[in-house]
């Protein structure tokens, strides 16, 4: 899909440990960081095969090539602790991939398109998620609607907002990031004919049709309220990249 997949992999590896390599080789028990990764990856493979309810700590230990006692030593919380670590690890992997995809983009439209496509592709192709959606929907669906979806929206928009900070102020960036997350979640939960979020051109059409006009309206309203801003969707006027998120004006929505 992108030419810099290698960089993405090494970034992920740095963040969560070398997952695939350590999962495939039964390396001798190493430092607990490595052990942790092996247990998490072992648990993930159990989830792909048999879901949450049927996975026992023995299964996880066997899959990770260590003893049950070792799993307990690394995760005193037992199964619950392992599962939480799996979710955290998978979210970190997703975010790091999103970070690479969005970081490569040089216009606001491309940031949104890259982030949304990457997210939909990774979530759609996630084997454990697919198994759970099919067999244990109660585990996953609370994150796609109602209560826990708020957590997803807040985590995702906090993560993605800084990538929009070159063009939008803090509050605008957060709301646009949350908005983009809603669009992705909506099409994952309820697919529509003619929209394929794993297809970059399909996502671009969606972003150009609905999101960019919204951002233009938002910016022109900010400009009208006295804060002069360049049009972020006009690439010729894009601001120079900055390392930190500039906070130009506090929006009124909070």
């Amino acid at each position: 899909m992108r030419g810099r997949r290698g960089e993405c992999d090494s970034y992920e590896a740095a963040l969560v440990g070398s997952s695939r390599a350590s999962a495939q080789r039964r390396v001798p028990i190493g430092p607990s960081g490595t052990q942790r990764v092996r247990i998490v990856d072992g648990a993930l493979r159990c989830l792909v095969r048999q879901g949450v309810a049927k996975t026992t700590l023995d299964d996880v230990a066997r899959e990770a090539g260590c003893s049950r006692a070792t799993v307990y030593r690394v995760f005193p919380g037992g199964k619950e602790g392992v599962l939480t670590a799996v979710v955290e690890t998978e979210v970190a992997r997703l975010f790091s991939a999103l970070g690479v995809a969005m970081g490569e983009a040089s216009e606001i439209e491309d940031v949104l398109v890259a982030g949304m496509t990457e997210a939909a592709t990774r979530i759609g192709g996630h084997e454990a998620l697919a198994y759970l959606l099919e067999n244990e929907p109660g585990v996953v669906l609370p994150y796609l609607a109602f209560g826990h979806m708020d957590d997803v929206l807040i985590a995702s928009s906090s993560f993605a907002a800084p990538f929009l900070g070159r063009w939008l102020d803090h509050d605008e960036a957060r709301r646009v990031a949350e908005w983009a997350t809603r669009i992705v979640v909506s099409y994952i939960a309820c697919p529509a004919e003619g929209v394929d979020l794993t297809d970059i051109e399909s996502v671009r059409r969606l972003v150009r049709t609905f999101v960019i006009p919204g951002i233009r309206t938002l910016r022109s309203s900010t400009a009208a309220s006295g804060v002069s801003q360049p049009d972020p969707t006009d690439s010729s006027k894009g601001r120079e990249p900055t390392t930190s998120t500039p906070t130009i004006a506090k929006g009124e929505a909070s």
Binding site: P142, L144, F146, G147, C190
Partner: peptide
């Protein structure tokens, strides 16, 4: 029901949300 039986109700409201949409 959302609190106690999310797995029973949510498929009707999310994956089958075509109807709601």
């Amino acid at each position: 029901v959302l609190r106690t039986e999310p797995g029973v109700l949510l498929p009707k409201l999310t994956v089958e949300s075509n109807r709601t949409v």
